[in-house]
């Protein structure tokens, strides 16, 4: 099996508008990335809080690089800081073409991570795992 490569980055939202409009934009970003990622075997998670994004991408290296490059060119965010870029043994989010955590709850670590403090990487990963884990439980309970 091909080596799984993981990239974790955070960036600042450049969207302007009402919260509802921003939510709609993010929903659109998610939909596009879910569609595109599933096609190339990339999974991951997106965290949005306090005007900042954190996104985790996992998959075959060349696919992750292609997806990453496309995201880089997106005008809807800026100040991209890569927190992790490394081969990993297994995927953290094997079941999510793009898990989403965000909206109402604040994730304190995100703005700090943008100050290029790479030690925040693990914390953000943890937050993503936790929130996504909880959502999965809710989804399971709702069914």
């Amino acid at each position: 099996m091909a080596v799984i490569f993981r990239v974790l980055y955070c960036s600042r939202n450049t969207l302007v508008g009402s919260p509802a409009k921003i939510d709609a934009e993010i929903a659109q970003i998610l939909e596009t990335s879910r569609r595109n990622n599933a096609r190339v075997g990339v999974t991951g998670g997106l965290l949005y809080s306090d005007g900042c994004f954190a996104q985790l991408l996992e998959g075959p290296m060349d696919c992750v690089e292609t997806v990453f490059e496309r995201i880089q060119c997106d005008p809807r965010h800026s100040d991209v800081t890569v927190l992790q870029a490394t081969p990993v043994d297994r995927r953290d989010f094997p079941d999510w073409s793009m898990a989403f955590a965000g909206g109402t709850k604040r994730h304190e670590g995100l703005p700090a991570a943008l100050e290029a403090c790479s030690s925040m990487g693990e914390e953000i990963m943890e937050t993503l795992r936790r929130v996504v884990g909880r959502e999965a439980e809710w989804l399971a309970a709702a069914e």
């Binding site: 490059e69 880089q72 060119c73 890569v82 870029a85």
Partner: peptide
């Protein structure tokens, strides 16, 4: 300004940032 921004964003090539 946008060119400076976009070209200055990180690149991921062969596993190197």
């Amino acid at each position: 300004k946008r060119l400076v921004d976009v070209v200055g964003r990180p690149y991921l090539v062969d596993g190197h940032v």
